[in-house]
Simulated assay, not measured.
Amino acid sequence: MKILVPVKQIGVVDEDFELRDDGKDVDPDFLNFEANEWDDYSYEAALQIMEATDGVEVVPVTVGPDDAEDVLRRCLAKGGERGIRVWDDALEDAGPAAIVQVLAKVVEKEQPDMVFVGTLSSDRSYAQTGVGLAAALGWPHAAVITGIEWKPGDPKATLLRELEGGLVEQLSVNCPAVLTIQLGINTPRYASLRGVKQAKERPVEELSLSDLGLSGDDLAAAGGSFRVRRMYKPETGQAELIEGTPAEQAARLAEIINELKGAA
């Protein structure tokens, strides 16, 4: 029995940053990299099932360059025996549809019983990976999951999912399925020092597009409807704290209103 968990290393923007020369993303020199928060919860959900049932394997998989292996090591420090990293130069700036196509091939290769995906990533927030992967595989899908009752081998899983207005929906889904996991479903564990040391020795399989039977042309076709036109920092307004007595504050407010009228 196997649970596959796609995870992502995200870039966190510094307070002061610059864009790349092409104007389509932040210059990597101004990014700090860390594990996506939602993926911590999806991985923890998989680990809890693994610990409750004998013979369950949890495998983290990521799509990213060499330094993205760090996110796999962070996962393996908490539990799991191996990870998978997929990369090819053609994946540089790949959109969600291309990433979904890659992950679908990994699922076909690994044949897991379930796939747990974070609801979204905090850097891009597309929230497309889970539903897109389910569509590519032809598997059932349930989103924003806050509770899971499932034992490996069961044909169905009972789920709780978060709705608007504080409502919670209970439903069942046929397995195998793709579940997108919401924050708060559990409390992600911290990796022990021993776990961190052991994770350095655990195998990470490196796959290229050709290993998965894909090419750059396949990705281009999959992501043809998605491209970043430009990225920019919008103009920001300004604020002023008006101090003084009520009369002084009123006088200053009148000055500001007259200044704005003159500018218009």
Rank of each mutant, 00 (worst) to 15 (best):
K2T: 14
H141R: 00
Q170E: 15
D25H: 04
K261F: 10
R20G: 01
K24N: 02
K78Y: 03
T53A: 03
L212D: 08
E110L: 05
F17P: 00
T53F: 11
D67C: 00
E92S: 10
P176M: 02
L207E: 12
S210H: 10
T180P: 04
Q9R: 14
R194M: 13
T187M: 10
T146K: 10
L163Y: 07
H141P: 02
P152T: 05
V7R: 02
P155N: 08
E162G: 03
M50P: 01
A247E: 15
E108L: 06
Q128Y: 14
E110Q: 14
V115A: 02
T158I: 04
T245S: 15
D89G: 14
G118Y: 01
T119M: 10
M231K: 14
R85N: 06
I242M: 10
E110M: 10
D22S: 03
E243A: 13
G244L: 07
G184C: 13
P112F: 03
L209R: 07
E205G: 01
R230V: 02
E57F: 06
A247V: 08
G95W: 15
E205H: 08
E255C: 04
A251D: 11
G223F: 12
V61N: 05
E255N: 05
G213V: 08
K105G: 03
P176Q: 04
A142G: 01
R202L: 14
E15P: 01
L91G: 03
L253K: 15
P176C: 02
S192M: 09
V86I: 14
F30L: 00
F33K: 02
D211W: 10
D22H: 08
G213A: 08
L241T: 15
V102E: 08
M114V: 04
L253Q: 12
K2M: 12
V12P: 00
L212G: 06
G23R: 13
G147I: 02
T245W: 09
C75R: 14
V204W: 05
I99C: 03
G83I: 07
P176D: 03
D21H: 07
A77L: 00
E206I: 05
V107I: 07
A199N: 06
R229N: 06
T119Y: 14
I10V: 15
E34M: 11
R74G: 04
E240L: 13
A254K: 15
D217M: 03
S208W: 10
G165D: 11
A264H: 11
L160Q: 15
A142C: 05
E18T: 09
E201H: 11
A191R: 00
Y126P: 01
E259K: 13
V196T: 13
F116I: 01
